[in-house]
Design a protein around this nucleic acid. Structure first.
Length: 812
DNA sequence: GCGTAGCTGCTTTTT
DNA sequence: GCAGCTACGC
């Protein structure tokens, strides 16, 4: 076996290439052998490197076969990266490891074992939208809104119960029968569970919880996996919830002698695995995490899992990684200062040897648009100075903040992509096409069937659907596919000939394609469904220009299936559906894409960038208003801020606005309390909250919302404008000018309606007028067609690049 | 059954 | 400021 070294790693002369270039703590974390190990890994402390070398070490030393290793990561992207890095170290010898997310690993187990407990291996997975749709039906049927139930409330509560491994039976025992709300919720929970089972489907939370229930109900099934996985490694352990914790507990349990005997009779090799008492000892467990980066308590992550690890797993070893290999000391000082305000935490201080680096840059805009313009301009100058777009990221707390950023970025011709947000697979037309696939893969699923019943329009309305459902309930309530059976027997319903024909047509199409599904490639299945149903055809024939885009999206989905088949020659339709459902926002991140990345702070975890813009650092946004009422909310928000700061390698920008539009109305925003926690000398304000105030001419305001007396601005006066002021003072003038403009122009600017200048011809030397920047002279025109860009030198706002097609400009 | 005009309520974060 | 729902007219 050959060990291939990462060429970027400095090769120590000390011998073992797996520990070359590591600091003593990292080295120990790679080499320690024992039952349980906790690696407390601060941000940027090289934990992925440690984890991959640890795995590579187990394989290279023949302590473990790859198939005995289970490594769990938070996202599919992290899993892919880890797999790649291990492969880099040990080559082909690493094949057969399970490196995946909790959810993917559980799907794999459930597909094998589904038949043990009333599901089939072709079960489908309901994403959040699917389970909401199901809950909506149930709430309506039960008239639950009269008791004040909402879909999001019910779904949140069910999710929470599942994350705590509470099933319907357990819950029913703690219900107060005198409380109508309690009783109603129990009924909702019961019906929801039953409908999922009937649909042969699991929701996200089920994937984990049902796997745990499976292991607990069938010890011999659990024993198979307990025997198989000898080394379990879990990344981001601080974000595990109770169900995930329980899963790890189950997997690391020793196998009792009687069960080992049973495994042996079943033909599994166990001989050399037994210990003195005849048991198979529990698997070794390595967890990596950082309680300061725990940001998912809202969806059930339990920080106690990591805090109490040593108690849960006695005789465990704890290794602390504090040396940071990512950021400058200034950035780390800010991060350390902020996080130290969280009491009740394990002391940890990040340090680096790379030096102080540049100061953090602060900026306060008058509006969210103003702030976005600052970000765009700074990115433009970073780009000119040689930073690639792909090395720049913009973070925000809520997805709605992308609107202003996107608008300005488009105008400024900055290439960007939004991670997360409205994803491709959430688009209605894609969900429609997917529902066709699901109906073929899992004919028991009535939700998918209902979705496509009248898409494209074939005259099947609510009344017809109800009739079909009634037939199913009376004639085939316990059949595996009641609604499909009803459709096949549509002529018994006494409906009109046209509707009956439409129903039968759809049923026949699904049946025919289903017959080929076992062997046909996924893209052929999809194409057959699209052509048979006329899904794309109808969109192409439509006059609505948006429908053309929808048709293209479906074409794109066909391309995705082809790509999938290319990468997974043996991949089935089910594999495709599973993969699509379990990809996360950060997963479609393509590092080669040469664009600026926009994402929420949550999505940013685990990533790093040369330059980071943290926007909207305001009270009610960061910390978010909703967090105030939750226990531990403000502390979690502070960790979120900390995560954001520690993503930056070289340059960090913190920005905020004095007013922010939310709900379509403009509100006054206050600087975040967390800004005050960063030592003054670390930030250079290009426009501090105080200065934005004095120039903007509005009422005096303190930096902090919780001002405790006069003069609370304490040190936030920042650098005088004269010394290295931003863009020659262009911000003040441009924005001040904007503020005095008539309101109609603002409305136009804020709504973000797509402007189209058509074929506006511009060439160097032309004078133009811009809504925000005033008048200026065109210096150069580059690019083609819709991508033509004008570089303009404005009289008062400095030089900007503008996308001619959409910029709010006029030739004068 | 279909299309649309007008109203409501909402956003915190995601596997 | 928009999505998603309801009510109403065809």
């Amino acid at each position: 076996m050959t060990i291939v070294l990462d060429p970027s790693d400095p090769t120590g002369a000390s011998g073992d290439p797996l520990t070359a270039g590591l600091n003593p703590q990292q080295k120990e974390a790679v080499e320690y052998r024992g039952q349980s190990l906790l690696i407390v890994a601060g941000a940027g402390s090289g934990k992925t490197s440690v984890l991959t070398r640890r795995i590579a070490g187990l394989i290279a030393s023949r302590e473990a076969w790859p198939s005995q290793i289970l490594a769990i990561t938070f996202t599919n992207k992290a899993a892919a990266e880890m797999r790649e890095r291990v492969a880099h170290l040990v080559g082909q010898a690493g094949e057969g490891m399970w490196i995946s997310t909790f959810h993917s690993a559980c799907v794999r187990i459930l597909r094998r074992e589904a038949e043990q407990f009333g599901f089939t291996k072709s079960f489908t997975i309901y994403d959040s939208a699917d389970s909401r749709a199901l809950l909506k039906r149930i709430l309506k049927q039960l008239d639950a809104d009269t008791l004040g139930f909402t879909v999001s409330q019910a779904s949140g509560k069910i999710s929470k119960l599942k994350n705590e491994l509470t099933d319907v039976e357990t819950y029913s025992r703690q219900v107060n029968a005198g409380d109508p709300q309690d009783v109603m919720f129990l009924e909702i929970f019961r019906q929801y569970t039953r409908e999922l089972q009937r649909a042969n489907a699991f929701d996200f939370d089920d994937l984990i919880a049902q796997t745990v229930f499976l292991f607990r109900a069938f010890p011999h099934v659990a024993a198979t996996y307990q025997r198989r996985f000898r080394h379990i490694l879990v990344d981001e352990y601080q974000d595990t919830n109770h169900a995930q914790y329980a899963l790890i507990r189950e997997l690391t349990r020793p196998v009792d002698p009687e069960l080992v005997d049973e495994l042996e009779r079943g033909g599994q090799f166990v001989q050399t695995m037994r210990d003195g008492s005849g048991r198979i000892p529990g698997a070794s467990l390595t967890v990596v995490g950082d309680s300061d980066q725990s940001i998912y308590a809202f969806r059930g992550a339990d920080i106690r899992n990591i805090v109490e690890f040593e108690r849960d797993f006695p005789n465990s070893k704890v290794i602390l990684l504090e040396q940071n290999y990512r950021s400058t000391q200034n950035i780390l000082d800010a991060a350390n200062a902020v996080i130290s305000n969280n009491f009740d935490r394990q002391a940890k201080n990040l340090f680096t040897t790379v030096g102080a680096g540049e100061k953090i840059v602060g900026f306060t805009g008058y509006t969210g648009h103003d702030e976005a313009q600052f970000v765009a301009d700074e990115i433009a100058s970073l780009h000119e100075a040689g930073t690639a777009y792909k090395d720049v990221a913009v973070f925000y707390r809520t997805n709605s903040q992308t609107r202003a950023l996107e608008e300005i970025f488009i105008r400024s011709a900055i290439p960007y992509r939004v991670l997360g947000g409205t994803k491709f697979y959430e688009r209605a037309e894609i969900k429609d096409a997917m529902a066709y696939l699901i109906s073929v893969a899992n004919p028991a699923d009535p939700m998918a069937l209902r979705r496509i019943m009248n898409v494209p329009k074939r005259g099947i309305g609510p009344a017809t659907e109800t009739a079909l459902q009634r037939w199913a309930d009376t004639n085939a309530p316990d059949a595996p596919t009641p609604l499909r059976d009803a459709m096949r027997n549509a002529d018994q319903l006494g409906l009109g000939p046209k509707v009956t024909g439409a129903i039968r047509g759809l049923a026949t199409l699904l049946d025919e394609v289903q017959a080929t599904a076992a062997t046909a490639p996924v893209h052929e299945i999809l194409t057959a469904l699209i052509e048979g149903s006329g899904l794309v055809e109808v969109l192409r024939a439509s006059r609505d220009p948006q429908d053309e885009a929808r048709a293209e999206n479906i074409d794109e989905l066909v391309a995705v299936t082809k790509e999938f088949q290319k990468n997974n020659p043996d991949g089935t339709l089910l594999d495709f559906l599973t993969e699509v459902t379990l990809v996360a926002a950060a997963d479609d991140l393509d590092d080669t894409s040469g664009t600026v990345s926009l994402m929420t702070l949550h999505t940013a975890k685990g990533l790093e960038y040369e330059a980071v813009f943290l926007t909207g650092v305001e009270e009610d946004l960061l910390p978010h208003r909703m967090s105030a009422s939750e226990p531990g909310g403000p502390a979690e928000e502070r960790r979120l801020f900390y995560v954001g700061i520690t993503r930056a390698r070289q340059k960090l920008f913190l920005s905020l606005a004095m007013t922010r539009a939310q709900f379509g109305e403009v509100n006054v925003a206050m600087p975040s309390r967390y800004l005050q926690e960063i030592p003054v000398e670390l930030i250079e304000w290009k426009q501090s909250p105080g200065m934005a105030n004095s120039r903007g001419g509005t009422q005096p305001r303190a930096l902090n919302a919780r001002r405790d007396g006069a003069g609370g601005v304490g040190g936030f006066g920042g650098t005088p404008r004269a010394s290295g002021g931003y863009g020659g003072g262009s911000y003040d003038r441009a924005t001040a000018a904007a503020k005095t403009r008539p309101k109609t122009e603002w409305a136009n600017r804020v709504t973000g309606t797509v402007r189209d200048n058509g074929d506006l011809e511009l060439e160097a030397g032309d004078r133009i007028s811009h809504v925000d920047f005033g008048e200026g002279r065109v210096m150069a025109v580059t690019g083609q067609g819709a991508r033509r860009i004008a570089e303009v030198s404005f009289d008062s706002a400095g030089r900007k690049k503008l996308l001619i097609k959409v910029a709010p400009i006029e030739k004068i």
